[in-house]
Write a protein that binds this DNA or RNA. Structure first.
Length: 126
DNA sequence: TTTCTCACA
DNA sequence: TGTGAGCA
């Protein structure tokens, strides 16, 4: 199971990474954390597990991956608000990296179409 | 039995 | 962050 995944829940079956099927007890056992810890992760808006019809939390494999990520950072002594900020910044960095790669690809395409022009060097005033 | 919320250490 | 109470 990989860690993070920016993809939204898709129209998929039981093995979907976003299928909310695991109880809090199962996840706590899997990650070796307290159930209360998983509830606090949710209170701090670091995770949003689904709910069963009876109101019980239901975690997907995506949720479990993120919970493990949070638990690892908490083990290193970070507070939940700090971890939330880090995750926000991780998402921002991923977005900026994606934009950078996209711009780089467009620039390469431009150079391929106009090889004679030096598009990346604004001329020096003479 | 398991999970829920809430309160306290 | 962990634990326990009381409830469903």
């Amino acid at each position: 199971m990989t860690d993070d995944d920016p993809l939204p829940p898709g129209p998929a079956a039981l093995d979907d990474r976003h299928a909310p099927i695991y109880s809090i007890g199962q996840v706590a056992g899997l990650l070796d954390v307290q159930q209360a810890f998983l509830r606090r992760i949710e209170e701090q808006h670091l995770l949003s597990p689904g709910r069963s019809e009876g109101g019980q939390r239901r975690y997907s494999r995506f949720d479990i991956g993120r919970a493990r990520h949070v638990a690892d950072m908490a083990d290193e002594g970070m507070t939940l608000p700090s971890i939330r900020r880090i995750i926000e910044l991780e998402h921002e960095l991923a977005e900026i990296t994606r934009e950078r790669d996209e711009l780089a690809a467009r620039l390469r395409a431009l150079h391929a179409r106009h090889p004679a022009e030096q598009l990346d060097r604004p001329g020096r005033p003479t």
